[in-house]
Simulated scan of single mutants.
Amino acid sequence: MTNRSIEASPLFYARVAGFGLLLMAIFAMFSNFSVLEGLIIPDDAAATANNIIANELLFRSGFISFVIVLILDVLVAWALYVLLKPVNKNLAMLAAWFRLVYTAIFGVALSNLLNVLPLLSGANYFAVFTTDQLKLYAQVMLLVDAFNNGWLIGMVFFGVHLLVVGYLIIKSGGYIPRIIGIFLILASAGYVIDSLAHFLLSNYADYKTIFQLIVAVPGVIGELSLAFWLLIKGVKVQQRQ
């Protein structure tokens, strides 16, 4: 079998998409939970800055992991487009573009974190807080907030991407199990609702756990189910062509 025939096989793209989705989940969970959730303390700029200073390597690792996620997002958008275009080429292209727009927005948001360490380079760990130092810590929180806000905007586009992908899966006639498409549509609603709630509800923190469950449950089930199905059962994709 030639390299050209391997690359043209739907199984090849299924493996690329599945492996990409699985790796993204691993790197994103590391960056989000081990780094951002572990180091950033909401409404406490000094504690956040000191956590980052004391765990600089961890912070840098989280940033690199997010960059890897960006690269994988592009690969997954490409692979899913190839896999879903037999169902509806125009909608598959639309889904890919929404994911790429999300990736671009997330990349711009991520650049805010790139400026955090240079800003803290002159700060002293656990030093007596001066006015200038407090201002510097406040600037760090502004960068972190800008990253979070940009990510939230991007998640609206990502939610629409999942909506279109879920619809295509449902309409594929068993090309990919319809139940996965249903969970992806539920996940898309969760992402959009959570993002809008951040901007619309001044007391979002009071309902944070509820919104996290709305996002996490269908998102984890839908996206990981798609990843594992493409990796393990992706050979069935070949039956489409």
Rank of each mutant, 00 (worst) to 15 (best):
I64S: 10
L57D: 13
A96P: 09
N32L: 14
A95C: 06
T48H: 09
D43T: 07
R4A: 12
L70F: 10
P118C: 12
E7W: 11
V220H: 10
L100D: 05
F63R: 13
V220G: 05
F158Y: 15
A227C: 06
T48Y: 07
I71K: 13
A127N: 05
V235T: 08
Q212T: 07
T103N: 14
A197D: 04
L120F: 09
F147I: 02
D44Q: 06
L84G: 04
A46C: 04
K89C: 06
F147Y: 15
L100Y: 01
A92T: 03
N112V: 10
V16Y: 08
A146G: 12
A187R: 00
A79Y: 03
D206V: 06
A205P: 01
S195T: 01
D73K: 03
G154W: 00
Y167K: 07
L196W: 14
A17Y: 00
N3W: 10
F12C: 09
G38E: 08
F157K: 00
R15S: 09
V235I: 10
F12K: 06
G154M: 05
N124W: 03
V140L: 05
F228H: 02
V74M: 14
A28I: 09
S121W: 07
N115W: 07
F30H: 02
N50P: 01
L91Y: 14
F27Q: 00
L110P: 09
L230G: 02
L23C: 14
F183P: 00
V69M: 10
G219P: 00
S202E: 11
F19L: 12
I221L: 08
E7P: 01
A95G: 08
P42C: 13
L224Q: 03
W97A: 08
P177Q: 03
S111R: 06
W78Q: 07
N112P: 08
N51K: 03
V192Y: 02
L136S: 10
L80F: 06
A104C: 13
L11M: 13
G234E: 04
D132Q: 13
L134D: 07
V116C: 09
A109I: 12
A146L: 11
F106R: 07
M1Q: 08
F157E: 01
A227V: 02
